[in-house]
């Protein structure tokens, strides 16, 4: 296939998955600027890999493929200590959309944001993959390069930790008390 045709095909893949890539990167880094760098680097790596594909080869699941590259890119970043000095900032999504005011005014979203900030990146990612993208454990294990049992226990611990962090907030206590009453 001609390179420019491949470019068009790649562009279609990227455009269709860019938002998900950004979300995963954000869940990884919890920093918008770093997330953007990560996505940019991922796209570049994916692009080069895509151009190397033989005509007979095809990406079966472009989204998983891009996620896998992003996860590996993030690992590379961490190895290079590029993320070592990064502080976990409070959520900086104020500049994104007008609708963000809904999050700011929502008690639960404040709690959720605070809890996610405190959660380990690997927990945030596994929660994002399972809860938002609803990947199976096998798919997640493939993307993260860990065993299915590791995914299971990681998800369990992640949800336990998130639940604990949410429980500390007033909203969650209130919610739990409602749950108890039920």
């Amino acid at each position: 296939m001609l390179n420019w045709l491949k470019k068009l095909k790649f562009e279609k893949i990227v455009r269709g998955n860019l938002k998900n890539l950004m979300q995963l990167a954000y869940m990884k880094s919890k920093d918008r600027d770093l997330a953007e760098d990560l996505v940019q680097e991922t796209c570049l790596k994916a692009y080069n890999a895509f151009l190397q594909l033989k005509p007979s080869e095809e990406i079966q699941n472009p989204k998983s493929w891009l996620f896998k590259i992003l996860i590996n890119t993030h690992i590379d970043y961490v190895r290079k200590k590029r993320f070592d000095t990064v502080e976990i900032n409070s959520i900086d999504i104020e500049d994104k959309k007008d609708g963000i005011s809904q999050i700011e005014t929502s008690h639960f979203f404040k709690d959720l944001n605070g809890a996610l900030n405190k959660l380990e990146p690997q927990y945030r990612v596994v929660i994002y993959l399972a809860d938002v993208n609803q990947y199976s454990y096998i798919e997640i294990s493939d993307m993260l390069g860990v065993s299915v049992s590791a995914v299971t226990s990681r998800l369990h611990r992640a949800r336990q930790a998130l639940r604990m962090l949410l429980t500390q907030s007033g909203y969650s206590q209130e919610y739990l008390s409602i749950g108890t009453k039920l």
Binding site: L18, K19, M22, Q23, Y26, M27, A35, E36, V39, I93, D95, K96, K97, G99, I100, I103, F108, F109, L112, N113, I127, Y128, D131, V132, R159, L162, R163, L166, T167, S172, Y175, L176, G179, L182
Partner: peptide, 20 residues
């Protein structure tokens, strides 16, 4: 129920993370 609620809220929350 908290897990279910969190999942639903998380999906909504993450939808605000968009590409600039």
């Amino acid at each position: 129920e908290l897990n279910e609620e969190t999942r639903a809220k998380l999906q909504y929350y993450i939808s605000f993370v968009d590409v600039s």
